[in-house]
Design a protein around this nucleic acid. Sequence first.
DNA 1: GATATATGTAAACATATGTATAGGTAGGAG
DNA 2: CTCCTACCTATACATATGTTTACATATATC
Lengths: 203, 203
Amino acid sequence: MRKITDRQKQVLDYISDFIDEHAYAPSIRDIQNHFGLKSTKGVKDHIDRLVEKGYLNRAEGTARALEVIGNGRKASRKIPLVGTVAAGLPLLAEENIEDYIPVTADMARTEGMFFLRVNGDSMINAAILDGDLVLVRPQPFVEQGEIAVVRIGDEATVKRFFRFNTRVELLSENPDYKPIVYYDDDEDIRIVGKVTAVYRTLE
Amino acid sequence: MRKITDRQKQVLDYISDFIDEHAYAPSIRDIQNHFGLKSTKGVKDHIDRLVEKGYLNRAEGTARALEVIGNGRKASRKIPLVGTVAAGLPLLAEENIEDYIPVTADMARTEGMFFLRVNGDSMINAAILDGDLVLVRPQPFVEQGEIAVVRIGDEATVKRFFRFNTRVELLSENPDYKPIVYYDDDEDIRIVGKVTAVYRTLE
DNA sequence: GATATATGTAAACATATGTATAGGTAGGAG
DNA sequence: CTCCTACCTATACATATGTTTACATATATC
């Protein structure tokens, strides 16, 4: 990234902080006042440089349309957390959404991703504990042995997924639990998606 | 929360999506055009209602100063990820910052929090794996047995922390590792902070 | 020394944008 | 029926805001 001057960095930092605080960008005159300048031109010069050097995005002819690039301001997406869905899908009905959790945009490239709260300790040996949140990417198939969210009847569970010809095995990562075996005849089993991340809060 | 009409919800959703996409709020005329309206007044009415009902914040006399409240648009903070800091602190020097990771604001109320990449499998029985990211809240003490980041000499490690009189024990959650014991005479050990969350990405 | 860049003042200008006034239609609540 | 609210058109106004022209000073670079 091209170098910027101290003054330019001051301006960039101010814009960043302002956006963090207000959820919208400062106007040129906001910046002017903050630095005690007596003309808008100086500010515009700084912004022009910052845009040229790739530190800012600006939509022309638009008020407060500054966007800080990089430097910790990468886009983040809010993913819905559907509660402990014991009582079946559809998951994403608004009533089921407990909360929204931000993740970096590159973790959520796919549409329709969601967080699910894990219920029980059946995946304890895969380092997934009761109460952990798993990020799920919806997809109809997974690779052999990957951790998947599977819908069985009206329940959603997290298991390692294996397929042998017509037989499907769902393995827990806990010796106390036995494998769950299904055959293709059984219609009431379907892969919901693949677990792509695990979030846990302590205390 | 007070009820809103279908139309009001459409407007609110559009504003939300617009902000997600552009990082700044739509103007009244942006909204007007999107819904194909022929006057700005209708839009202003909707926004007025949404502000009254607590779904929007608005800074008066200011362009594009809409902020969506609640409903999945909770504030998020970006926390720096300092790499695998084998070679000691200071952690937050800019050169060490690998990335920034968003978390919900209520997870990061304290200043100075950071993510640390865990090195090794010594905490495997606490469901923390090699490569996991732990969110650390800086604090000089932790409760008995809590998982802490501890600086020993120039290295930072994640361990369960116990104190018995003048003796400090750092326990791994892995039978292959022996407890690390220190005495108060040893000056080169210090609690960096407490582990408050664990983030893992699969695949 | 000449040239370029960073930084700034001063004064306008053009327009993007929020706001207001006047009014209309439809549907529900009392 | 009457009143209120939701929702919309049409037009105008005030100002917040981005942009431009002209000029000045200091510092670094060649």
